[in-house]
Design a protein around this nucleic acid. Sequence first.
DNA 1: AAGTTAATTTAACATTTGATAAGTGTATTT
DNA 2: AAATACACTTATCAAATGTTAAATTAACTT
Lengths: 189, 189
Amino acid sequence: MSNQLLAHFKQISSLTASSEAALALLIQTHSIPKNQDLQQIGQTCKTLYFLKKGLARIYYFQDGNDVTEGFYLPFCLIARAESLFAGMPSKKAIQVLEDAEVWSIATSDLFSLYETHRDIERLFTRMFEQAYVQTIQRIENLQFHTAEERYRLLTQDQPDVLRKAPLKFIASYLGITQVSLSRIRAKKS
Amino acid sequence: MSNQLLAHFKQISSLTASSEAALALLIQTHSIPKNQDLQQIGQTCKTLYFLKKGLARIYYFQDGNDVTEGFYLPFCLIARAESLFAGMPSKKAIQVLEDAEVWSIATSDLFSLYETHRDIERLFTRMFEQAYVQTIQRIENLQFHTAEERYRLLTQDQPDVLRKAPLKFIASYLGITQVSLSRIRAKKS
DNA sequence: AAGTTAATTTAACATTTGATAAGTGTATTT
DNA sequence: AAATACACTTATCAAATGTTAAATTAACTT
């Protein structure tokens, strides 16, 4: 059932009844067990995902190290934009960190709908704009805060992530080692 | 004259003759002296800029420190996206680092054209997508490279910036102090 | 419950980076 | 040429983070 997701979409940008119906036909639902990859390294991003339940991350390997690029909570747009927009294989994977229920939309079908349903195009353009703005804010965060400040910000902004994700993933997300993160957590705040 | 800019646009995404003409009417040109702000802190971003000649940066103040968010070479889209898409005042400014010639486009006029000229909408959507992808790549860069690696990458990717911009701006762009950058430069590579 | 594995913390030491201040060089002005 | 301002480098020490390894805790299996 995609009603919840469509309701969420309509909060972002209005949809006509016909657009909503057309979009509903594209939305698939899946159950994904904990730790499974939703999309694997090397695949070109051709699907958008939204979690109904659970927690996901995008990760990749850098010099043999597992690096978490981002965490994704329910109703967030999950996509490997650098692959989607360039049409190139992604070096990143999407992994579910808990048993999850997932909505997916094939971009080929979606982009076809853009031609006839401008409100749908506007909706997704807006979601990507929001994702872009969040990425900009993340750079500000990485560029001029210490590791400890970045950790404190995460505890404020995404406490759910902190509760659910293993520390090793959080450490690489913050751009530090797990040992360093452990030290920061041990400090009285 | 905006011919060069339009030619650049058409490399990114095709435009009908009528769209090209409509767009040409929106493009203004300016000459800006070295060190002047194109847009100031506190203004809401309502204009897109492209350099014909020169070098620009986006910067802001963080705890009293001048932080350079990015450098922009000729023909790059320059905009404070976080302000444009949210419609909120920006805490960032756009500054020209050399005497520059600039093309500008008012977003209100541009967005109006979207209604009637879909190819124009597609062109700018694509430019913002590209900017988004670059932002994602910058995160990868900041997240798991040492300061020295980030400096080496900059020398490869944007040697022009390195030649033209003062070191203090480059240092904050790399997320380090100027002293630290000086040390890195002093090392034999 | 015992045993096994994975996750997290702690410890010890090395390296990097920051902070501050002093020094050098380069334009520019007078 | 002297004086000034600005950009960049160097030196010194302190703080933060990385690296490696061991110790502890938690989770999972049997």
